[in-house]
Simulated scan of single mutants.
Amino acid sequence: MDLRFLSNFLKVADFQNLTAASAVLNLAPTALSRQIRLLERKRSSAALCIACA
């Protein structure tokens, strides 16, 4: 697992918005979403609760 993915995930959690975090990180939202999906698969659990907001 890449530590950069974890760092990017924390940025999404801070902003509580994937699009805003992707803009700050200079990543496409789809790339950031893919990183989070890979983290979820690695941990076998959901990292973000989309419906919880």
Rank of each mutant, 00 (worst) to 15 (best):
L39W: 08
A51G: 06
A53I: 02
L18P: 00
L6D: 15
E40M: 04
L32D: 01
A53P: 00
L6E: 15
R41I: 06
V24L: 13
V12P: 00
S45M: 10
A13Y: 13
A21T: 00
A47Q: 11
L18N: 03
A21G: 05
T19K: 06
Q35D: 12
C52N: 04
C49V: 01
L18A: 04
C52S: 06
R37L: 10
L32K: 00
A28P: 05
K42Y: 14
S22M: 01
M1G: 15
V12L: 06
S45G: 08
S44Q: 08
F5R: 12
L32E: 00
N26Q: 08
Q16C: 09
N26V: 05
P29F: 03
S22Q: 01
K42D: 12
I36D: 05
A13E: 13
F9V: 08
L32I: 01
T19H: 04
F5S: 14
S22L: 01
A31P: 06
L27F: 04
L32F: 04
S22G: 01
N8V: 03
K42H: 13
A21M: 03
R4Y: 12
T30E: 15
L6N: 13
A47P: 01
I50V: 11
S22W: 00
I50H: 09
A46K: 12
M1S: 15
C52F: 03
F9I: 08
K42I: 05
L32W: 01
Q35E: 15
A20F: 02
S7P: 11
F5N: 13
L48C: 09
L25P: 00
A31K: 07
N26P: 02
A46Y: 03
S22E: 00
A21W: 02
Q16G: 09
T30L: 14
P29M: 05
Q16Y: 09
A23T: 02
C49W: 05
P29H: 04
A23M: 05
A53K: 09
A51S: 08
L39D: 07
I36V: 11
A13F: 12
S22F: 01
L48Q: 01
A51N: 06
D14K: 15
F5Y: 14
N26T: 06
A51Q: 07
L32T: 00
D2E: 14
R43G: 11
S7K: 12
N26M: 08
N26W: 06
L18D: 01
L3K: 14
Q35N: 13
I50M: 10
S33C: 09
R37H: 11
T30M: 14
N26C: 06
D14V: 07
M1I: 10
R37D: 11
S44W: 03
N8M: 08
R43T: 10
L39M: 09
A46N: 09
A47C: 12
L39T: 03
F9C: 11
D14H: 14
L6Q: 14
I50R: 10
C49F: 09
T19L: 06
L6F: 13
L25A: 04
